[in-house]
Design a protein around this nucleic acid. Structure first.
Lengths: 195, 195
DNA sequence: CCTACCGATCGGTAGG
DNA sequence: CCTACCGATCGGTAGG
């Protein structure tokens, strides 16, 4: 009945679930594992959430919305394609760094969504990828990027490296999200080779 | 008792399992699912394999060995770092393209290995990554690559995009493995920017 | 948030 | 490769 307390406890459940799902995978995580993390009985979880999958839905769609919002802001900027690409990458890394655990779940566990949620999720994702692809194509059209690059390969390489960051990136390390995003953008745009 | 027939049937089991694990994930795949794919009863699987995890071990370690062998050959070549990097990438893509299903399992499902197998697998993987990193560092040392690149970021970006290929690459498409490997290498070395 | 419990399904074995 | 079966565990509900 207490909305605030319920919400707060629900958030604790979701956060703990994210850690569990990241560590063991969604399918291998049991509600009893989750309850134990929180020091309660499994049955008690259901006063905060409707089902195991509802937790996954919350995690996946909340992250998707944050990524989309980040790219919305970038697209409004009136800058060159390489700058836009940089800003998009930095934005993505920033969103990820804010919650690396949820990001890892977003990337690795979304396939356990049932339909129609899975279908909706995949539509959001392909849309997000296509917006990055459009930025690269703008760069090709304007002559900023090479004419002969494979834009699909380019965008999948970008998206892959963004998706894998939660696996190895630690914000406690020396490099900050903005710096990491800038370096990745720089590497993709300018390459490794000495010029 | 018939070694050849047994081996062949075992291989069918492992191949079907790879498809199932790729599609649903290891934990969400049941031995009854697998048996159904093969048109037999679940209990009958155990005349060909010892356990569910044994299948995963076979898939993961066989792929790991193929990737390692491919890189072995590249390291023996007496060529520049960027050529070595190219050849390493092409080799990796070739191994992957030979069995995209097993590659996807290798990438996504290895974490369900139990110890000591998981530990062994992760050691093989970090070793493989470090050998690519060494190639990049050679390029930096020789002046072929920029002095100020973040080699960890570079190698993780490379490894990420290699790992994600099974998710989107189809060899039935227009681009062949060798061509794909060359384009990826070219993109990482030379970047997207028009020079 | 708990106790008590449900039907379904899991990986795997015995014995043929 | 099958029938018959095991103990364990699963997500979730009833009722308080």
């Amino acid at each position: 009945m207490n909305g605030v307390a319920n919400l707060s406890r629900k958030e604790q459940v979701i956060r703990s679930a994210a850690e569990l799902f990241k560590e063991k995978g969604y399918a291998a995580s049991s509600m009893r594992d989750l309850a134990q993390k929180l020091g309660i009985e499994a049955a008690s979880l259901y006063s905060h959430i409707k089902s195991k999958e509802e937790i996954l839905q919350t995690l996946c769609f909340d992250m998707a919305a944050e990524f989309r919002d980040s790219l919305d802001k970038v697209e409004k900027q009136n800058v060159s394609a390489s700058e836009k690409l940089s800003m998009g990458i930095i934005g993505h890394v920033n969103v990820m760094a804010r919650d690396l655990t949820a990001s890892a779940v977003f990337m690795n566990e979304h396939r356990h969504l049932s339909n129609p949620h899975l279908r909706d999720f995949l539509l959001l994702r392909i849309n997000y990828i296509n917006r990055f692809k459009a930025i690269i194509e703008q760069g090709v059209a304007s002559g900023e990027f090479k004419r002969n690059i494979d834009t699909k390969l380019a965008v999948m390489t970008l998206f892959s490296s963004l998706n894998w960051m939660p696996m190895w990136y630690s914000p406690e390390g020396s490099i900050e999200p903005k710096e990491l995003g800038q370096q990745l953008a720089n590497m993709l745009v300018n390459g490794l080779k000495q010029n």
